[in-house]
Design a protein around this nucleic acid. Sequence first.
DNA 1: ATGGCTTTAAAATAAAGA
Length: 270
Amino acid sequence: MRFQFRDLEAPALKIATFNINGIKARLPRLLEWLEETRPDVACLQEIKTQDEGFPEADLARIGYQAIWHGQKGFNGVAILAAGSKPLEIQRGLAGEAEDEHSRYLEAEVFGLRIACIYLPNGNPQPGPKFDYKLRWMKRLRARMAEIAAEEVPAIVTGDYNIIPHDSDVWAVAAMADDALMQPASRDAYARLLGDGWTDALATHYPRGGIWTFWDYQAGAWQRDHGFRIDHALLSPELADRLIACGVDKDHRGREKASDHAPVWVTLRAN
DNA sequence: ATGGCTTTAAAATAAAGA
């Protein structure tokens, strides 16, 4: 199936995801990153603000329109697009009415379906937070199956809080008991791929060793003690159009940086 | 280190993160 990127003249589309760990504290870094790298679409996680605190005007000033799903103090996701307002399709996942965390936002923009996710961390495990993580992944899988059934070009990207393979972490032993790499977490992630979604970075860097997160503690950045937990999953149509992908690693080393680095993919228009 | 940072919320600590 062929498709066109609507409202876009460029022959390729760049889509990025960035867990910014607080949009208020990170606003100068966020604006700087957008202006330097100019993604057509940017999915943000952990905006950590209520809806009314979202810096809509600051983003508009540099050419980005946005939709967002905020929450007081923590969580929160947003989808930004250069010169186009994302059309909201869905916020939140079905299947758990009492779940009030702002972790899922889905939109249509440039002729693509884009879901921005902030998957629960799940620590400590075992425990109720880990149970919530696994339930959330089950609900995500159900929604992704619905999207797949629509046969639209789609990308589900964000902070998955999953280390998919041992080659995606600096030291397996250091993280062995962490919720991010438990077999149940990995199995749930593998099921998404089994359903036909493609992990963009895993495809282009099959040997691993690519990190998207470095802890603030213990000199993790200076020692390159990181792991890969921010992912872009592509529908079959988009997987065929993947030109390039990578991590804006240098942004992790800047003043007042987030503990995550941005991840991006570039897709061919046809 | 059952937490070495960091953010938010809110006024000193506490929760959450990964």
